[in-house]
């Protein structure tokens, strides 16, 4: 009798399969609706989207204060989102609308048609001296470079050359905050969190425009 009272699970699941009709299409629409609704009721702490670029896919993430993170594929987008969940908020959705402006300006930049970004940035992932460094970087003009030592002076700590390197290597907003314009005193590129090729590509792009 017990057996009769517990029909086989997989058999029942296949019996119920008609409930799956059009499920994927419905879910795509529902996801978009959730992103919209969440934005409206202010429960979406981080919106993100993935955009194509000459440097590969870029993850763009924004809080309600501004763009908070740009990440290269090399950094592993899943890891980056998990870190945002741990440090800012797990209320994260793929919600492209909040990043329309950023995506458009990046397209223009990579096309050589934009020299400065006009975006509101959220620097909450950076503190102290690293923040000073990042806030100085946009003052390095498009197509120009500065050495780590020059940036250290500009950020108010001439001896902190190594810390400038760390600030650049942990820049949460690469490309938009141009850490790629900081190079070694001997003129070699130095490291880059998107890889040396990405840094070379950006400097070449800016030199050509």
């Amino acid at each position: 009798m017990t057996l009769e009272a517990s029909p086989d699970h997989s058999e029942v699941a296949s019996l119920l399969e008609p409930l799956d009709a059009g499920l994927e299409t419905a879910l795509a629409g529902l996801h978009a609706r959730l992103a919209r609704d969440a934005q409206l009721v202010h429960t979406l702490d981080i919106a993100y989207r993935i955009v194509d670029s000459p440097l590969g896919k870029l993850l763009l993430a924004a809080t309600d204060r501004g763009i908070v993170r740009v990440a290269f594929e090399l950094e592993n987008h899943g890891d980056v989102l998990q870190l945002l969940a741990n440090t800012v908020s797990p209320r994260i959705l793929q919600a492209p609308a909040r990043l329309d402006d950023a995506a458009r300006q990046l397209d223009e930049y990579f096309a050589g048609a934009r020299r400065e970004f006009d975006l509101i940035l959220d620097f909450r992932l950076s503190r102290g001296f690293r923040l000073n460094v990042l806030q100085h970087l946009p003052r390095i003009a498009y197509g120009r470079t500065e050495s780590y030592a020059e940036v250290a002076v500009a950020a108010g700590s001439p001896n902190a050359v190594r810390a400038v390197g760390t600030a650049c290597a942990t820049n949460p907003l690469p490309v938009i905050v141009p850490c790629h314009r900081v190079v070694k005193s001997d003129g070699s590129f130095g490291g880059y969190l998107g890889g040396a090729d990405a840094k070379r590509a950006l400097l070449t792009l800016e030199a050509a425009a």
Binding site: L19, D20, L30, H31, P90, R91, Q94
Partner: peptide, 29 residues
């Protein structure tokens, strides 16, 4: 950051991707 936050909770997007279909089947039924 509170220590509880360090025990990582996945981004909500992952929850939607993983559970969205099941919840929709349940609601449909």
């Amino acid at each position: 950051m509170e220590p509880e936050q360090a025990v990582s909770k996945r981004p909500f997007e992952a929850v939607v991707q993983e559970q969205g279909a099941t919840v929709l089947r349940v609601c449909r039924a």
